[in-house]
Design a protein around this nucleic acid. Structure first.
Lengths: 340, 340
DNA sequence: TTGAAAGCGCTAACAG
DNA sequence: CTGTTAGCGCTTTCAA
C-alpha cells in the first residue's frame, strides 16, 4: 500500500504539482495550502518514491565509499570521517567492502550497473586489483584514496607515505642512534608497503646506510605471523643500533610481544616502530612509536572533493596530499615525550 | 551523454520493447535479433538506468546493514559475513554506520526516505536509541541484530548473551575457584552490557554469591578508561578468588596492562576475562579468556532472513538465536588449554 | 516473434 | 500562487 503523491494531492484537495512544490520549494506555496498539504503528508505518512525522484533529478544524493578487505581497525576512522562529511554536505554515505578473494571489479561492476550512486570514493591498496580500468570506464564521478590509478586524470586523496616514513627514519637516525633497519612489511604488492619501504631506503641511503633485501620481509599485516617471524629472528636481529620497522602497528605489536617473551628488551636491545597509530600502538609494553595517518581527514577530504566534482563535473582534477604525523612513544629510545 | 534504451533500439533497428526483452527475458527473442541488440548494447556501453528500472520493478536489489558507531574491530566480521551472504543471494550490500552523536533515527530516516533499499538489517546496541519506532513505522522489510525492539513482531538475529555469560561464569566458578566478581561494563544503557551483567548476577546468585552494585562499573568500552580504573582499584580488588569480568576485550586488555604495570600477576593475584574474542584477546600477556560471539554468522544470518522476508513478505517472523562460545586462555587460571 | 502504447511516481516548464 | 501537461527510462500488457 504505497502512498503516492497523488493520494496526498487528493486528500489535500490540490494538484500533484502543488504537493511537489511543498516538498521541494516550499517558499513558492501559499502558507495555508502548504499547511494543508503538510498535514496530508503527515496523515498519510507519505514519502516520495526515491526511484521516481531519481529518475527526474538524475541523482540519488548517495555516495559510496568502497574499501578493500578490512584488516584491523584502520578503516573505521576513514569511514567515520567520510560519514560526517557526507552528512554535512547533504549526502548519504554507503560503505562497501570487497573481499580479497574477488578482484574488486565485481563489486564495482554491480555498483555501477545499478548506478544508484552519485559518486564513488574507492580505496585501492593492492596494486594487483584490476579496479582502475573498470572505474575509468564508468561515467561515475569518483575519487581514489591513497593511490593513483592508471588512465585519465582524476581526483585523489593521497597519504604522503614518503613524508611519513622519512620523518620516522630521520627521527630514528638522529635521535635514537639507529644504524641498521629490519623492515617487516605487508604483501609485496601492497602499495602502502611499497611506498614506506622505498622511502625508508632513500633516507638510509642518504645517510650512507643500506637496507639489503635480506633485511626485508613481506608478511600479511597480522600480529601472529609477525610474532612468529620475530620469535625466530630476534636473536640475530637484536642490537642497540638496530630497529625493526613494521609496516603497521599490529605487526609491530606482535614483534614486541615476541621480544617480551624472549626477554629481549625494547628499546634497549632493539627498537621497534609501527605505522598507523591504531589503538594497538598504545597497548604494547612499551607503547609504540608510530606514524599517524590522518585517516579521518582522509575520509572527509575524499567525500568533500567527490561532492565538489558531482556539483561541478568539469572542474580540473584535484589532488589532496595529507602528511602523516610522527608519534614518538617509548619503543624506539631517544626522545621519550609523546607528541600531542 | 547517458545512453538510453532508445539509442540501443535505434542502433539495432528494433523497438525498445525488444531491447528490454533481451535484457530481462532473452529466451523470448529471436536469436538473430538478440545478437543484433546485444552488439548494439556493447557498442554503446549501455547500462539500464537503475532509477527507471526500480520505478517499474519496485526493487533495487540492494539491502543495507546499519551499525552503530563502530568501536573496535568487532563489526568487521559482521560486515564480512553479511557481505558474502548478500552477494551469494544476488543482492548488493551497503553498510552504513551512525555516530553516537545523532540518535540513529536521522540515518534511518534518510535511508527510508530515499528508500532505494529493498530491506534493512539494523544493529541497535543502545537501548536509548530511538530507532525502534522509526523502523516499525517504515514499510521497509527489516531485521534487527542482537536486540529486540518494541512494537510489532519482526525478524531478528540475537546473540544469546545469557548463555555466553553463564558459560563463562560457570567456568570461573567451577574451574578457577572464583568467588568474587568485579564487573566492568560499557555504558549502562548498552543492551549487551545489561544482558551480560544480568546473566553474571544470576549465575552468581545460583551459587549463593552476590554481585553488589559497588562492584559494578560502567565505562565506555575503551582501553584507556579501563586502564585508569584498574590502576586505581586493583590493590583493593586483587585476591586469588577474585575475577574482573570486562564487557569487552579492549577493556580487559586495559585492565591486564594496568595489572602488569602494578606488578599484579594474572591470573595468580586476580583473574581477568573479556568478551568478544577480538584480536586483542590474543595480544595481552597472558592472553585473555573470553567469549566468542559468532559475528560473521550473525551478519550472514541477518542478511539471509532479510532476503527471505523480501521474497515472501507474509512469512511469520523468524528469530535466530546464536550461542557464543567460551574461549579459555590463560588469564583466568584453571584449565589452560585453548579450545579450538 | 515483435511493436505500440500505457503507465510507474515524480519534477518542471508553461499557462492561467 | 496553482493546475495542466509533458516527459524521465524502463517494463509490460495487448495486438499484430
Amino acid at each position: 500500500m504505497p502512498v503516492s503523491i497523488e493520494d496526498v494531492a487528493k486528500l489535500a484537495k490540490v494538484s500533484i504539482s502543488t504537493v511537489s512544490r511543498v516538498i521541494n520549494r516550499r517558499e513558492l506555496v501559499n502558507e495555508q495550502t502548504r499547511a494543508r498539504v503538510e498535514s496530508a503528508i503527515q496523515e498519510l505518512g507519505y514519502r516520495p518514491n526515491a526511484f521516481a525522484r531519481g529518475l527526474m533529478l538524475r541523482r540519488s544524493e548517495i555516495v559510496a565509499l568502497v574499501l578493500p578487505d578490512l584488516h584491523g581497525e584502520f578503516y573505521l576512522e576513514i569511514i567515520r570521517g567520510a560519514n560526517l562529511k557526507a552528512r554535512a554536505l547533504g549526502y548519504n554515505l554507503v560503505v562497501s567492502s570487497f573481499n580479497g578473494s574477488d578482484d574488486g571489479g565485481s563489486l564495482l561492476y554491480a555498483l555501477e550497473q545499478r548506478a544508484l550512486l552519485d559518486g564513488l570514493a574507492v580505496m585501492i591498496s593492492d596494486a594487483g586489483a584490476h579496479i582502475g580500468p573498470a572505474l575509468a570506464a564508468s561515467r561515475l564521478p569518483f575519487v581514489v584514496l591513497d593511490d593513483e590509478i592508471e588512465g585519465p586524470a582524476h581526483d585523489s586523496v593521497i597519504i604522503n607515505q614518503a613524508c611519513g616514513a622519512a620523518t620516522l627514519m630521520r627521527h630514528l637516525l638522529t635521535n635514537c642512534g639507529v644504524r641498521r633497519v629490519i623492515f617487516v612489511g605487508g604483501p609485496a604488492t601492497n602499495t602502502d608497503t611499497q611506498a614506506r619501504l622505498t622511502s625508508c631506503r632513500e633516507v638510509l641511503k642518504a645517510a650512507g646506510l643500506a637496507l639489503p633485501s635480506s633485511s626485508v620481509y613481506h608478511l600479511d599485516y597480522l600480529y601472529e605471523t609477525a610474532y612468529v617471524l620475530a620469535s625466530k629472528h630476534l636473536p640475530e636481529w637484536r642490537g642497540r643500533d638496530a630497529c625493526i620497522v613494521a609496516a603497521n602497528d599490529e605487526m609491530a605489536a606482535g614483534i614486541v610481544a615476541a621480544a617480551n617473551s624472549l626477554g629481549v628488551e625494547i628499546p634497549n636491545d632493539i627498537a621497534v616502530v609501527g605505522f598507523d597509530d591504531t589503538r594497538i600502538a598504545r597497548m604494547t609494553r612499551p607503547p609504540l612509536t608510530t606514524v599517524r595517518v590522518p585517516t579521518s581527514a582522509m575520509g572527509a577530504s575524499a567525500i568533500e572533493i567527490l561532492c565538489q566534482r558531482i556539483a561541478e563535473p568539469q572542474r580540473p582534477p584535484t589532488r589532496i596530499s595529507l602528511d602523516p604525523e610522527l608519534v614518538v612513544r617509548e619503543s624506539c629510545g631517544g626522545n621519550r615525550s609523546e607528541k600531542r
